[in-house]
């Protein structure tokens, strides 16, 4: 893509010049903080005084902190519940959308409205839905003769309630991605399967799903990365409670940083999260590359 014919000498300068505003902003407000965060993780710092170098203390004390395993468990539970619900529902809706029907655009738009709405606004609406007295969810339960549930103030239901809301919020994204994946499937294979008499469930299970496998995995990893970073809803709806049952890693990080003012500990925690997410991203990139290339080869 580089010009072959008499490259202008000025191009070297022009290139840097054009890139420099973005590089400057990213360098100062993104790259620099990322590096600083790593260093802060080895200090004891309360934002007001000078940071004190403490080596690996933050990491060792994090591992020894009795809250840490609980936070990790909460986070993993959140991510797993979220992934299962989200992928199953999104796949079902995408399959339903993947037929020639009118109004496809309408449905896609409907599923997408929650995606473009701010998590803060959504959290407030769902707080009202989860309200034990007069909230919509308990009203529906009551029609079916159920007892009111105290969704957000019971340690057993608070986290699942947040999961349900998060799935609702982000479902549209994955429906669209799955739909794109479905539409890209080679039509001949599906048709030949039909000729062979594979219909309905059998066809989905033995033909469509294996073909869609890579997409499911890629979409799943992206959704997982998002789920790991859950914060807004916890901040608005539960403040990490009741009894820390909804204290997920980013909320705890925020608490350590801006409630307890343990910046070193918060930064150490941030880098642990970073390591996990970087790992997931790396897996995603690698897989994507491999599959995209395979597709192009065949």
């Amino acid at each position: 893509m580089q010009p072959v014919r008499h490259p202008l000498r000025s191009e070297r300068i022009w290139g840097l010049l054009l890139a420099s505003p973005a590089l400057f902003i990213i360098g100062v407000f993104s790259l620099l903080p990322t590096l600083a965060s790593f260093l802060i993780g080895f200090t004891d710092w309360d934002l007001l005084g000078a940071p004190k170098w403490v080596g690996l203390d933050n990491y060792t004390s994090l591992l020894a902190d009795p809250v840490f395993p609980k936070v990790v468990a909460n986070t993993l539970l959140f991510v797993v519940l979220y992934l299962v619900l989200d992928l199953v529902l999104a796949l079902a809706l995408a399959l339903a959308l993947n037929q020639k029907l009118r109004g496809l655009g309408f449905f896609r738009t409907a599923y997408f409205l929650p995606v473009v709405t701010s998590m803060v606004a959504v959290s407030i609406v769902w707080e009202w839905i989860f309200d034990p007295r007069g909230g919509a969810l308990n009203e529906v339960l009551r029609w079916f003769g159920g007892e009111p549930v105290h969704w957000l103030s019971d340690p057993a239901t608070a986290l699942p309630a947040l999961v349900v809301m998060s799935v609702w919020k982000s479902l549209g994204t994955n429906v669209v991605l799955f739909l794109a994946g479905l539409q890209a499937l080679p039509g001949e294979v599906l048709e030949s399967a039909e000729v062979d008499g594979a219909t309905g469930w059998r066809r989905f299970w033995h033909v469509t799903l294996p073909l869609l496998g890579p997409t499911v995995l890629l979409v799943g990893i992206l959704a997982g990365i998002r789920a790991f970073q859950t914060f807004d809803s916890v901040y608005i709806m539960t403040h990490g409670g009741p009894r820390r049952s909804t204290t997920v890693i980013v909320y705890w990080l925020f608490q350590n940083a801006f409630t307890y003012f343990k910046l070193g500990k918060a930064s150490a925690l941030a880098y642990m999260l970073f390591a996990v997410l970087a790992g997931l991203t790396w897996v995603q990139w690698t897989l994507r590359k491999r599959w995209v290339h395979q597709e192009q080869d065949t």
Partner: peptide
């Protein structure tokens, strides 16, 4: 000094 965190600890730890 760690009043906030102690309060959290009391609420969570004694909850059960």
């Amino acid at each position: 000094p760690a009043y906030d965190e102690i309060t959290w600890e009391l609420i969570d730890g004694l909850g059960p």
